[in-house]
Design a protein around this nucleic acid. Structure first.
Length: 638
RNA sequence: GCCAGCGUAGCUCAGCGGUAGAGCAGCUGAUUUGUAAUCAGCUGGUCGGGGGUUCAAUUCCCUUCGCUGGCUCCA
């Protein structure tokens, strides 16, 4: 007997007895949903609607606008794209074409390079295929047969894929004369594709392996309806407008110089001011929480990096040694060994723990030239680094404090949503399995006691210890790598980092690495896109701009400016003989939070006409009203 | 690093074998203005660097540096 569920409405039909295809069955029992149904799960296994109904199973309907439905839709669209490419470029060899977040891609091997002008042509051909309403027909082949079949068609990548499959039977899908190796499921037919768009062309290695053939990848997206796709495209365009590289130029926050070298940031005055303000806040918050602040050098002798293991295992990210008085020195890629040296400078008692050292530590790492990306991926950057040295008993409460601290910080910067990951032991690791189990359990316990939901990323940790990562969601719903708290089994042993316990014995410390912002550079990039350049008042280099309407208003404006400055408000005056509209336009483009229009009325009454960059004209305020409003903004960090 | 694309004035871009053009910005002058662009004039580029082909290169070729989209990696 069958049981059918619509997971969206929780509507259930039980004890169904039906002969025919799943599509027919749904049509009979779930008439309303059958139009939106694009596949089902039979006892949890995704299945095409064209399959026969089994005698007994639990069937869940997959609707076209569900997450799984979208995956199927996009993957099917990838097939149609591949089909169109084969039609237009018969010599193209197809590789793989999965659905990905927000879309899909397909990799091709083709001697001719795709150019942007090809995309509309391929889209047109896809439209034709979709218009033909071709069914996705599933067939199976014996493994050897399939190998021979694809070999004969010259599809060497498919052959390689099949050779990697263990099963004796492989699935094949036919759409018109296009044939692809595929597990499925797929849409019933191409006409179910309602909205799609090809987005970009890129290179990608076969199987992501840089020693293998470079293929051409076409990216696209597909949605259940046109409006959702338009919204998505609009979001992409909004993201482009907010791109920190563009905003950084418009607001003159930072720059890179060809003469200086790639991946090396120059913070211009505006960006430097924002960074300084964040740093001040960061230091204050650390001092409040019992951290000590340290400064350490940018270079150290090579032996230190041999002891730490970085020279052996992190070498490809480190710069070559420089010779100083016959000794080899290296630019630091990490701050940890330095903080450890400070810890080790004096023997420690358990009474002194935890020791928490924090530093805005500038490190240099070699990144492959192709990996560099604005502020998000650079070669010299300042980590907001801290190391916690504690006893095993202290670990849990330290972890709780860390995570709470992290969340408080990111919420301060306007990130209200985030995802927490707990990454556990990978295949290769330092320390003992018992150590790992204990540390993982402690991290989990800490998260549980705070009461925050988290996802366990099995085997996702780095070799030296389990970690908690927090991904933050920005104003456009994009996820960014945020705070990270990493346990370390490795360095305490390498540097002999110990304390004397209550038992009179020496013990290795429990060591935790921790960054809340990540790096000043990447965080600044993220923050810029999150706010679209309209930084909260407390961070703005210029918080208010005075705009006298004519020259005769400059005197009062100057007076007001002095008064505001005396209150600690960062003010500028635009005394040019320009129209007020023009001054407002420029101030708006510079995202200055408050614009004060000063004319006869204001000069006479001693007030100010206040305009807010987002709320527009706020009307007349007294000086004190305005001052308290700005102070309120600053206090609330908005 | 690899594949592809791109480097023309501070910015956004046009041009393309016959030694460069627009808008904005900047400067000067006029204008004295009430909530997103006042008008006029002027300045500004060895067309990323180097080499080659050619009578002639910003334009074609090679090379190098840099940027962009990806792969890979990650604070």
């Amino acid at each position: 007997m069958l049981k059918i569920i619509n997971p969206q409405t929780h509507e259930t039909k039980e004890n169904i007895d039906f002969k025919g295809t799943l599509a027919e069955c749904l049509k009979k029992y779930f008439q309303k949903d059958s139009k939106k149904a694009i596949a089902v799960k039979v006892d949890g296994i995704p299945t095409d609607l064209s399959e026969e109904v089994p005698a007994e199973a639990v069937i869940e309907i997959i609707l076209s606008d569900s997450e799984e439905g979208l995956e199927i839709l996009r993957h099917s669209t990838a097939h149609v794209m591949a089909s169109a490419v084969k039609k237009l470029f018969p010599e193209a060899k197809i590789a793989i074409g999965p659905s990905i977040e927000n879309g899909f891609y397909y990799d091709f091997d083709l001697s001719r390079n795709f150019v942007p002008e090809d995309l509309p042509l391929i889209e047109k051909e896809m439209d034709r295929i979709i218009g033909q309403n071709l069914p996705f027909v599933k067939k199976t082949m014996k493994r050897d047969e399939a190998i021979a079949f694809f070999k004969q068609r010259g599809e060497i990548y498919k052959v390689e894929l099949i050779e990697g499959i263990e099963d004796d039977i492989v699935g094949i899908y036919e759409t018109g004369d296009f044939v692809d190796l595929c597990r499925g499921p797929h849409l019933p037919s191409t006409s179910k594709i309602k909205a799609f768009k090809l987005l970009s062309i890129a290179g990608a290695y076969w199987r992501g392996d840089e020693t293998k053939q470079m293929l051409q990848r076409l990216y696209g997206t597909a949605f259940d309806d046109k409006k959702e796709m338009d919204d998505y495209i609009a979001r992409l365009e909004e993201a482009k407008k907010r791109d920190h590289r563009k905003v950084g130029r418009d607001l003159d926050l930072f720059n890179f110089y060809e003469d200086g070298g790639p991946g090396l940031v120059y913070w211009h005055p505006n960006g430097a001011f924002i960074r300084k303000t964040i740093e001040d806040y960061w230091r204050d918050e650390h001092l409040k929480r019992g951290y000590n602040l340290v400064y350490t050098p940018h270079i150290a002798k090579i032996d230190l990096w041999k002891t730490s293991g970085h020279w052996d295992f992190y070498n490809e990210n480190m710069y070559r040694p420089m010779d100083i008085d016959g000794q080899q020195y290296i630019l630091k890629p990490m701050n940890c060994p330095f903080h450890i040296m400070i810890y080790n400078s004096q023997p420690k008692s358990y009474r002194e723990l935890p020791v928490k050292s924090a530093e805005l530590g500038t490190v240099y790492r070699y990144e492959r030239s192709g990996a560099l990306h604005g502020l998000l991926r650079v070669r010299g950057f300042t980590q907001d680094d801290a190391h916690i040295f504690c006893t095993p008993e202290q670990l849990e409460s330290e972890m709780i404090d860390c995570v709470k601290f992290a969340i408080e910080i990111i919420e301060t910067f306007g990130f209200k949503e985030y995802e927490i990951n707990l990454a556990t032991r990978p295949e290769k690791y330092a320390g003992t399995p018992e150590d790992w189990d204990k540390a993982e359990a402690t991290l989990a316990k800490a998260l549980d006691s705070i009461g925050l939901p988290y996802v366990v990323d099995e085997a996702g940790a780095v070799f030296y210890g389990p970690k908690i990562d927090i991904k933050i969601k920005d104003a456009l719903g994009r996820l960014w790598q945020g705070p990270t708290v990493q346990f370390d089994f490795n360095l305490p042993k390498r540097f002999n980092v110990k304390y004397k316990g209550a038992d009179g014995q020496e013990h290795f410390v429990y060591m935790v690495h921790r960054a809340l912002l990540g790096s000043m550079e990447r965080f600044m990039g993220c923050l810029t896109e999150h706010y679209g350049g309209a930084f909260p008042v407390w961070l703005c280099p210029v918080q208010a701009i005075l705009m006298p309407i004519t020259d005769r208003h400059i005197e009062y404006a100057s007076e007001l400016m002095k008064k505001l400055q005396a209150q600690g408000i960062r003010v500028k005056m635009d005394a040019r003989s320009e129209k007020i509209n023009f001054k407002i336009r420029e101030a708006q483009l510079q995202k200055i939070p408050y614009m004060l229009v000063i004319g006869d009325k204001e000069a006479e009454t001693g007030n100010a006409a206040v305009r807010h960059r987002k709320e527009g004209d706020l009307g007349t305020m007294t000086q004190d009203e305005f001052i308290s409003r700005v102070k309120e903004d600053i206090a609330h960090k908005i």
